[in-house]
Each structure stands twice: as C-alpha cells, then as structure tokens.
Design a binder for these strands. Structure first.
Lengths: 146, 146
DNA sequence: CGCTTATTTTGAATGAGTCAAGATAAGAAA
DNA sequence: TTTCTTATCTTGACTCATTCAAAATAAGCG
C-alpha cells in the first residue's frame, strides 16, 4: 500500500500534491533513506554523495525534515543518540535499542494494530501516536558481557 | 516505598551504599529535581543556585548523570527537546508530550504494572524497559487551533 | 524560452552537553 | 581534632549535530 510512496513515481506524486518541487537532492535523499534503514544523517549524506557529490549537507537536512513532516519517512532519536531515519511508515511499528552499542531493530507492535493509544489518564491531550522504545542488550553485547 | 530515596537521609544512604560521597551539590541537585518534576537542566541549575549560588553547571550535569545511573532519578528526552528529569522512579509510568508546545505530563501505564515488556519479536535482545511516549496536543494548544 | 521564486549552496553560528587541569572538600585514619 | 588521600568540584575551553542567513541556482509555469 504505502511502498508506492518511495518509488520514483510515487515520491513525485507526493511532492507535487504538497506543492513541493521535485528536485535531485530530494529524490536522492529519499532513495538513500529507503536503501539504508535506520541510518543517521551522516550516513544519508554519504549515500547521497555517491550519486550526487555536490549535494550540500544543508539540502539533506532540509529534505529529511520535509519528508518527515510529510509523513513519508520517520525520524527516530533514542536518548543519547543522534537522529536516524526510516522509510517504513504508517504501520505503527516500534524499536528495540541496545543500551551498550546503540544497535537498533524494528519490532512489530505487541498489542495489536493500534497499540497503547489509550493512555489511562490523558490529561486532556488529543493523542495521535504512541511511540515505544524497548531498551535492552543486543545479542552481541550480551555475549561480550560474559 | 521509594520516596525514602529522595528524603535527605535516604539519599545519603543510597550514595554511601554506592561508595559515593555525600556532597552539597549532589544533595541540592536531588532536592531541586524532586521539587521541580520534569524540569530541564537549566531549571535545575537555577533552582540549585537559589540555595547554593556557587555550584557549577558541570557539577549539576555530573550529579544528574550519577543519579540517573544509580536509578534515583530518570531522564526524559522527547524528540527535538532537551533532557528533563524526574524523581518519580520505579513505577513504570509513561509520558504525554504536546507536539506544539512541548508540555509534558505523567501517564500511568494502561496495560498493567509491567506493560509492553514483551516485544513481538525481540531480535534476541534482553529487554529491561519499555519506554512509551504519547504524542498529541495539550488542551491549551487544542484551544489555540480553533 | 524566459521569468519567478522555491531550493540549494556556502559558510558561519548556535547551544546542549562534554572534556581536562588544577583547586577544593569529604571522610578515613591517626 | 588534625592530617592526608583522592573523589568531587570549579573553571574555561571545546565538541558536534543541527540551524541560520545571504547569495546563487534551477524547477516548472506561462
């Protein structure tokens, strides 16, 4: 359903519908995010530079923010780590993060399709998303601790 | 049960048991965190300065990190916001954050005492905590949008 | 094809947080 | 109590992901 958003034709459509111009930096950034799940900004910049050496870091930052606002990609930023991005979006999945090495993996929601969206006391907030981060130790770091 | 940790005698005990010295900056920082739930570092520094004008920002940063590691306080850092601290700890509660103004409130767990600790696929991680952040709009910002 | 202006480039700036060296004070021992 | 050791604090410089701003460029409408 949603993968079309990250196909070449799909992204053009998404951008045009939002009255945004379809530029080379933007297309390259989205391709890089799709090809590098959970990559940080520096990794995205490097990936973009492989095909487009002259794209500035600012253009990458701008594009990442734009796509995040449009809901085409998602930003993840666990405590004490820099921002990462993923193009898997709209399926309400979560993440496990290793306390030691920062390694990050996807986790499907354990409670169902739209989990935990009901807080016990929402203080009058209109809640639209429940973000869940599982903290622990990845297999590699568990092995090192022995 | 756990409040004793933040009483004067309690914190001395906690620090001594961890072979840490009981210093004026540390006691002042813990008092400030307890008195200002969800405060950021700058607020903590200001609060500490009211009683101890000469305590350095570095001592505050060090103390906050120490207490966080000891489990006496908890650090919260929603995306795009700076770190905040709270002394309510050990009861596995969560937070609602306003997308617009950053306002933050406590939320008791909706799933029970130890919620969501079972990820559907944990990728072999040894999970010890499920951090949940509910995103939405606080009552004030909802009103402004009308 | 040319024009308008959204995007990009370039380069400097921001700011929460960290590092490091010397000064201070907690608390063990005498 | 006084001395001594060293953990902790003060001071001030520094990091680095991210943002800001002005001038240059290019998307895409007419």
């Amino acid at each position: 359903m949603l993968e079309h958003m990250t196909s070449m034709a799909g992204i053009e459509q998404v951008l045009r519908e939002a009255s945004m111009r379809v530029t080379q930096p933007r297309v390259a950034v989205l391709a890089a995010v799709t090809a590098n799940p959970h990559a940080d900004t520096e990794t995205i910049i490097s990936a973009v530079h492989e095909g487009h050496p002259n794209v500035s870091h600012q253009a990458v930052y701008d594009s990442l923010k734009l796509f995040t606002n449009l809901g085409v990609i998602r930003q993840i930023q666990p405590q004490g780590h820099i921002a990462r991005y993923e193009s898997r979006v709209g399926d309400n999945h979560h993440h496990v993060v290793c306390r030691q090495c920062g390694n990050l993996e996807d986790v499907d929601c354990s409670v169902g399709a739209s989990p935990c969206l009901h807080a016990s006391n929402d203080h009058g907030f209109k809640i639209d998303e429940a973000e869940v981060i599982y903290w622990g130790l990845c297999p590699e770091c568990q092995a090192l601790d022995n």
